[in-house]
Nucleic acid binder design. Structure first.
Lengths: 275, 275
DNA sequence: CGAATCCTTGAACACCTTCAACAGGGGTGG
DNA sequence: CCACCCCTGTTGAAGGTGTTCAAGGATTCG
């Protein structure tokens, strides 16, 4: 198992159909920034414990650990087409979502209208944490490819909270730490280090999910990478070319093969966790 | 009341003495990045409800609202000299701290040793939230001037959590949102917009605390501003000069007088909240 | 096959950094 | 009290990094 993308898992939950640009969450309550059509997507009854990404999903782990939860909690899967929205900024918060397959990105929309890609979510990641403190989402979440998510409604969430308050703190804390680390990186490092750090982050997340840390497919376009890392598409492209020249990695469109992980870590100014 | 700094409030809690470079928190458990001497600082028994910054302190507000809490919770004030630490990165988490007077900064230390100033805390702000999800602090907190903080130990914290879980989410969420907003700003805007945004942020926070939003003293040096905003000291200095030339504000060392708040908002690419 | 999107590459330019020098203030010690 | 020193802040000049503008190639999809 060397080459793979998260796409492979998608087939497992595909079964319902949905049309382009749909949204799972509640209907809009405040100003919209996007005008993608929104309707309810097909729902697929499913227990969380059948989740393919269970091993790296904190919610699934908690449910599995507590037998009283695993029998009482009925969660539903949703099938998303590319470009479908999970929620929009301003939506009332009524559920968290666990990514089961595919990949989701969230972005902020500033007052001046420009967007910033905040996070890329992989299977096992929990989506919607941004709204925990208030009751509206502060970011929008959209599928970058055909994806599946598992909806954890507010009511079920409260059931979970009774059993493990720490879960929520870990979730929110995880986002907080990640943001702060990225902030540090964006401020202190040059573009090449930032891209190297980004690739390493992906690599480690793939590895944590049982995939190869050295060969994977990017689920996002150059535009999103640049936006996320605060650089232009052209710079992303040039850096990939330079890194390839330097023998750090091979890039063919979305397909990345890391040749020299050590140097990549060094370039990012990070320490390698592995022995 | 036009000109003031947070210093004025400091006198209210000064009464104990402490020597340079002390730290309130627990003794170090992991690697230290700083070698400032650490001993317990003088403690000043005090009820939170006597806090000068109570109006803008979520903890104080909660305690005041719940009569059963206001009688059972005994919190202690700590007096910090300039450069005293509240906690170090790696310290075990055993309390949150509410800033009562003065000003505190927190910074991250990266693997390569360089530091990044994450947040400047004013009276009423809650410190130490970074450790809520784990049990160690991920940042260090140091007083930028003589300051007073109110310690809220873990045990008391749990008492508070029973009454209002939302409090914690608001706290953590606040940090999350602020970080994300700053991230967006750092990535999308140029240096001048970033500095303008920073000043507006300060202005709004001063105003929320009953001080003039147009005239205040910076509690941090240029170095810290630059570090926080991801630019060099020289750039900060040059931008202040330029803004002064453009009639946006007057700067005399730490003293800032905003002349044209509207233009400053425009420069930052923000919308003015006021009518 | 054409259209649209994505990606790459080149050249000029803008922004910010770095290096260097200096001015002013505040604190300390003689 | 004054001289000194260190820290903070300012300003100038040169240089680098990344952006913008422009054009062309590659891939996908209807």
């Amino acid at each position: 198992m060397t080459t793979q993308s998260m796409d492979s898992a998608t087939a497992a939950v595909t079964g319902g159909r949905s049309t382009q640009g749909q949204c799972i969450g509640a209907m809009p309550k405040v100003q919209r920034y996007r005008t993608t059509p929104r309707t309810k997507v097909t729902m697929l009854a499913d227990y969380c414990r059948t989740c393919v990404s269970r091993a790296s999903c904190p919610v699934a782990l908690l449910i599995t650990a507590k037998s009283e939860l695993s029998n009482s909690l009925l969660l539903h899967s949703h099938v998303l087409k590319k470009e479908d929205y999970v929620f929009y900024v301003g939506d009332v918060f009524d559920a968290l979502y666990v990514v089961k397959s595919g990949s989701i990105k969230t972005y902020l929309t500033s007052e001046t209208g420009d967007e910033h890609v905040v996070t890329f979510y992989m299977p096992g990641d929990v989506l919607g944490v941004d709204a925990l403190g208030r009751n509206v989402h502060t970011s929008s979440a959209v599928a970058m490819e055909a994806s599946g998510v598992c909806r954890v409604p507010l009511a079920q969430l409260e059931k979970l909270a009774e059993h493990s308050l720490g879960l929520f703190f870990r979730l929110v804390y995880g986002e907080l730490t990640r943001d702060q680390q990225r902030l540090l990186m964006l401020i202190k490092k040059g573009a090449e280090s930032r891209l190297a750090g980004f690739l390493i982050g992906l690599s480690e997340r793939f590895e944590a999910r049982g995939y190869s840390p050295r060969e994977f497919n990017l689920s996002m376009v150059r535009q999103d990478i640049g936006n996320h890392l605060g650089m232009s598409v052209e710079t992303v492209s040039r850096l990939f070319t330079r890194m390839q020249k330097d023998g750090l990695l091979d890039v063919d469109r979305r397909h990345v093969t890391i040749r020299d992980l050590d140097s990549l870590y060094k370039l990012a100014g990070l320490e390698q966790a592995r022995g």
